[in-house]
Amino acid sequence: MELKSKFARVMYYVICSFVAIIFIFPLYYTFINSLRDIFSLPATLLPKGFHWENWEMAFTLIPFMRFLGNSLIILAISIPIGIVTNFTYGYALAKLRAPGSDFIFSLVLCIMMIPTFATQIPQYILFSKLGITNTWWIWVFEAIAGTPYIIFLCRQYLNSIPSALMEAATIDGCNQWQLISKMAIPMSKPLVAIVAFRLFNLHWGDYMTPYMYLSREKWPLIMALFNTSLYVLPGTNTRPAPVVNAAALVLAIPTIILFFLCQKQLQQGSVASGIKG
């Protein structure tokens, strides 16, 4: 699509910028209000002062480093294992046809629709019988079980590698392992970035699993925010809204940074895993 007339082009810019301002505003607003004095009214358009101590409080009001450490443990388990397993499952479903592979693929699609709640409660009972609640094993299991929509994504992406190419490599004497390590993996760099990004989002924003399984000392950062919103300043009745704003941004910023790092791959990847099913 192209806009021919100059008027249309100007209108396009005006409207797009307007929409962009609306969409960026909540982030900006939260930012300027994380910097206002705790006892003042919220700022609307321009910052009222720069009270960086609110940010400091967001880190000190809670045992921040411990929560962050817990988050990092969860991510360090989920992302690497998740990349390997989801990629492997996606590869098998895309490139290795065997009796039952269609059935397994439809299983993957089905799991996508099961509400997390419906399995989480019985899973909880199961894990407490096994005595592994309040351990990190839960995330290991979850990572090995694979994430249905990420498996789906991997399968779609790997499907776009031409089979003829792989057959030629097989005839040249490549075994299965070489096919994966020499062809599939080098051709899937954007995919790996996408999967890492998705897994990060999934676990960084997940409050339910930690809430169910972990005791307070093991809570990740997201649970801290769930609680910061209930904090009152010692000795007063005031909810330190600016501190809560700062905490919300602390949670949002890593996602945004990671998006910028993976932006190119995210766009490449959606091209490849696009329409051709």
Binding site: C16, S17, V19, A20, F23, I24, P26, L27, Y29, T30, N33, P42, N201, W204, G205, Y207, I222, L225, F226, S229, A241, V244, N245, A247, A248, L249, L251, A252, T255, I256, F259, F260, Q263
Partner: peptide, 26 residues
């Protein structure tokens, strides 16, 4: 940049988004 601005809100953690909008609606 416009694409990024439009896309980012959808990937932020729901907990953070709720907190932010709570402040806007005060």
């Amino acid at each position: 940049i416009l694409r990024t601005i439009f896309y980012i809100p959808s990937i932020l953690p729901a907990v953070a988004v709720g907190t932010m909008w709570n402040g806007m609606f005060l």
